[in-house]
Simulated scan of single mutants.
Amino acid sequence: MTGYKITEGDVEAGLQDRIEVLVEKKSTTSWLWKMLGALLLLALCIGGARLYVWYQFERSESMQSGHTAAPIIMDPDVKTAAHSTLKEMSKKAKAAIHLVGHYDEDYNMIAVEWRDAVGQAFAQGGFRLYNNTIIIPESGLYFVYSQVSFRVSCSKDTEGAWRSMPLSHRIWRASNSIGQRVSLMSGVRSACQNVQDDDMRSGQGCYSTIYLGAVFQLNKGDKLETETNQLSELETEEGKTFFGVFAL
């Protein structure tokens, strides 16, 4: 039988081999953790990017790629809530203007007079009220809104039926880029259709409201103004007739 003698060199060599194997395993584990961390970070980035793209797509769909959105004609029963909500939204906007309407029949006014320094009215972020028109400070997307309220004194025709009275409200845009004045939004209602004789005898009249609101791509220097019929029937108490714009 052949004998084998373990020398001190053999022992040291074995220890070196064992130590090298341990170091290699530690290096492999650290590399795997780094790889998992990188993959997790990449997944989070991809998820965030997809969420951002989805948000921008939904927003662009709602704004119809910069084109005008369908006008909203709101029911009179929610006019107070609409006024409060829009007022709070416009306050948070960097650029916004909110005007209150005034009308004095004694001065034979041909349009609602908009005011920016009374009551809840204000202007900020470069917006200006000039010659009863709103001046757009910069090109971009804006939410334009307006409401007019009426208290109509209805009358009867020769047959004793209540005459229907048409009420209308429109927002116009004058732009150098377009070269002409165009209608942004308009709304029409008919008053005195379902009134009761008792209401007329008590002097209550017939109440009606027209609300308009939509998103538009506007240019710097554009001018917005309104046109309203039946001005003598207009209600200009606080929160009933207003006109405003705020940047998106």
Rank of each mutant, 00 (worst) to 15 (best):
I178H: 13
E58W: 07
I134H: 00
E227P: 01
N131G: 04
M63A: 08
I135G: 00
F216H: 14
D199Q: 14
D222V: 05
D75R: 06
A161I: 07
Q16E: 15
W33E: 11
Q180M: 10
L22A: 15
P71E: 03
T241Q: 02
W31M: 10
E12F: 10
S177K: 15
Q217E: 13
N176C: 04
V118W: 07
V23S: 12
I210K: 00
H67V: 11
G221M: 02
F143P: 00
M1D: 13
M109V: 00
Y52E: 13
I171K: 01
W54V: 05
E237A: 13
R59S: 14
V144N: 01
I46V: 14
L22M: 15
L99F: 04
I178T: 15
Q217G: 11
Q16A: 15
L212W: 00
E238D: 09
L44A: 12
D104S: 05
F57S: 09
W172Y: 15
Q180L: 10
L231I: 03
G47T: 14
S183H: 09
W172K: 12
T7R: 11
V152I: 11
N194M: 08
E12G: 05
Y4P: 04
H102N: 08
L39C: 07
S139E: 14
D106N: 05
A96P: 02
Q230S: 12
D116K: 03
N108G: 01
A49T: 13
Y145Q: 10
Y207W: 07
G126I: 01
L99A: 02
I97S: 03
E225S: 15
T80G: 07
T228K: 00
L234D: 00
S155V: 11
E61Y: 06
K94R: 12
W172D: 12
E238L: 09
T158L: 13
F122H: 11
F122W: 09
L248G: 09
G126E: 02
S60T: 14
E227T: 08
V215R: 03
R151Y: 01
L42S: 14
T7H: 09
S202R: 13
S146L: 01
I73V: 08
C45F: 10
M89K: 15
P166E: 02
L224Y: 03
S164M: 09
G14T: 06
Y52S: 10
G9M: 08
D75A: 07
G48D: 06
T85C: 06
Q56G: 03
F127H: 03
